[in-house]
Each structure stands twice: as structure tokens, then as C-alpha cells.
Simulated assay, not measured.
Amino acid sequence: MRQEPRHEPAPLPRHLRVHEDRGHTVVELRGEIDIATAAEIGPHLDRVTDRPGARVVLDLSRIEFFDCSGLRLVYRARSRVLDRGGQLQLVCTHPLTLRVFRVTGLSRLLPPRPTLDAALGQPEAASGPL
């Protein structure tokens, strides 16, 4: 009898940490989020946002650089979570990244919170439909 090979999940990239906290899946992005790291992070973020009713917090408090590739990751995660009836919160304090969110209008769709505790303690502020 031939056994199918087991596919272990790929290890998390160094720019990503995922953990559970108060009923939410917290996805921490770290360092520089550019086109190369976005390509590494994307599949892991898709897996987290694929569950119906997922409650996800994207924590950007440890990023140093964030370009349009990172913006696409955030918008895609938001769309996937909302399409599946879930909630998405955003933690961000980096001034340049906050500016990108404001200029693009994403801060109106997904209001950034200053801390993880603030995001986890305010479900009514979760991102909702347009």
C-alpha cells in the first residue's frame, strides 16, 4: 500500500509570528515588509484568514518599513476575513505606515489601534463592510 507523502506546513518566515490571544489569532509582522517578504508571508496569512468567522489581529507594531506590497497583504487579509464572516483588527503605531494607511483610505476601513490590548479589547471597532 502506497502512502501519500505528508506535507508539513512550511516554517514561518522570520518576519512573521502567529499566536492565539483572547480568542483571536494574532499575526505579528516584523522588520521590513516589502515585495520579497510579502511573497513569503502571503500564504501563511491566507491560511489564517481562510477560516469562517476568524477573529484576526494584524500587529504591525514591530515593522520598520512597509511598502505597497504590505498594503496589499493587509487589504487582502481584510477582504478574506470579512468574506468569511470574521473580524479583523489592526495594530499600528509607525508614523510612516500610519500615513500610508491614511493617504490610501485604508485607515477608514480598518482603523489602526495603538496597542494589542486596545485591539483585543474593542470588538466593536473591528473592520466591517464598506
Rank of each mutant, 00 (worst) to 15 (best):
V26L: 10
V26N: 12
A39N: 05
V26D: 09
E4K: 13
V48S: 05
R55C: 01
R51T: 15
L120V: 08
P95A: 06
L45V: 07
L98V: 12
L29S: 04
E28T: 13
R22N: 14
A126Q: 09
A125K: 15
E124F: 00
D83V: 04
Q3S: 14
A119S: 07
E28N: 09
T37L: 01
L130I: 12
L29P: 04
L120T: 09
S107H: 15
R2W: 11
R47H: 13
L58A: 12
I41Q: 00
V48A: 04
R62V: 00
L96G: 14
G53A: 03
E32I: 03
L71Q: 08
L109W: 04
L58Y: 03
Q122K: 12
R17C: 05
E8Y: 10
G121K: 11
E8F: 09
V57H: 10
R22Q: 15
D34E: 11
V74P: 04
G121E: 05
D21P: 11
I41H: 00
V27R: 07
D46R: 14
L12A: 11
R17I: 02
Q89K: 13
R76S: 06
L71F: 14
V26T: 08
H24C: 13
A39D: 11
P11L: 02
S127T: 09
L82S: 02
G86K: 09
G121Q: 07
V27Y: 07
L73E: 00
P13L: 02
R55E: 03
L71D: 03
Q89N: 03
R6W: 01
H44K: 08
S79H: 14
E4G: 12
E28W: 05
R55M: 00
L90I: 02
T104A: 05
R30S: 08
D83L: 12
R99N: 15
P52L: 13
R78S: 01
P114F: 02
R99V: 00
L98S: 13
A10E: 13
H15A: 14
P114S: 08
C68G: 07
T93L: 07
E4T: 15
F65D: 07
T97W: 07
G42H: 11
G121P: 11
G70F: 08
G85D: 00
E32H: 10
P111H: 08
E32P: 01
T49R: 09
R76V: 11
I63A: 01
R17M: 06
T25E: 09
R113E: 12
E32W: 03
L116K: 10
G53T: 09
S69W: 08
V57Y: 06
V56Y: 06
P11E: 07
H94A: 13
P123F: 00
L120K: 12
T49D: 02
P129G: 09
L29E: 02
H24S: 12
T97A: 15
I35G: 11
L88V: 11
H94F: 01
Y75V: 15
D67V: 06
V56P: 10
G86C: 06
